[in-house]
């Protein structure tokens, strides 16, 4: 089932044409990896899906991005509501300087959930889903900043899950983590794809090969190739894809 349909997306940042005629289908309950060299537009593309690019001045976006049957760039769209449906995890773990509990409860509180027992339940459920509950259940009121980098990142995933999103965007979520913490996040992603459509930007070919079902290769603002991960990695159709995944440039 298709979750997101992008057609003929163009993004200009001032005079820079950052995304060129991007068309891509994102399937539900699958992991889609976006790979490509730095500056190729994959993070920019990720940020069009929850409209985080709106925060930057002088960005012009054309084309169609459909989340199921909703055109997310329609002027009637409530951006805050959109971002509740499309959660995001960032490259650097960015928990708020608040307690673990308050970090997870932050989103639900903002859209008006006040009852303590309801929040307790959301916090517990989200932390369990993000596979960090056992490690933090005895210190929910401790600062999130007291956690290790890997734990902080799983907390950030829990914080995003607390909104009960449909899509999870991950922008190089393991870039700042050690191999063990990376392994745990990858394991978690494989668990989470049962419930969410996941789009992950990664610089690691191995990571893309390990965890994704589909891969899109970005180069200079364009999608060069897209397809099942296995096929893209074993029998790439485009010479440039082959050069990139075999490490000849990038």
């Amino acid at each position: 089932m298709l979750k997101i349909t992008v057609s003929d997306l163009n993004l200009h940042y001032e005079d820079f044409h950052a995304l060129k005629n991007i068309s891509l289908n994102i399937e539900d309950k699958k992991v889609t990896a976006l790979i490509g060299p730095s500056g190729c537009g994959k993070s920019t593309f990720l940020r069009t899906i929850n409209r985080m690019n709106d925060l930057i001045d002088d960005v012009k976006i054309e084309g169609l991005v459909m989340l199921e049957d909703q055109d997310i760039y329609n002027k009637d769209v409530d951006v805050a509501a959109l971002r509740r449906r499309v959660g995001m995890v960032f490259q650097k773990p960015n928990p708020f300087p608040k307690s673990i509990y308050e970090n997870v409860a932050y989103g639900p509180r903002r859209y008006g959930i006040k009852a303590k027992n309801q929040l307790d339940e959301i916090v517990e459920r989200s932390l369990k889903k993000a596979a960090i509950w056992e490690e933090v259940k005895d210190r929910l009121n401790k600062s999130a900043l007291s956690l290790s980098g890997g734990q902080q990142q799983r907390l950030c995933i829990a914080r995003a899950l607390a909104m009960e999103p449909e899509v999870l965007l991950m922008d190089e979520p393991t870039a700042s983590l050690d191999p063990i913490a990376t392994g745990r996040i990858e394991e978690l992603i494989s668990q989470l794809k049962k419930d969410y459509a996941i789009i992950i930007v990664t610089h690691s070919m191995q990571q893309a090969a390990r965890i994704s079902d589909k891969t899109a290769f970005f180069l200079l603002g364009e999608i060069v190739e897209t397809g099942k991960t296995k096929e893209v990695f074993t029998t790439p159709k485009d010479k440039r894809t082959e050069d990139y995944i075999t490490g000849r440039f990038g």
Partner: peptide, 10 residues
């Protein structure tokens, strides 16, 4: 921090 908050629909 701002990005995290906005991305959560705040």
């Amino acid at each position: 921090y701002r990005e995290a908050s906005l991305a959560l629909g705040a």
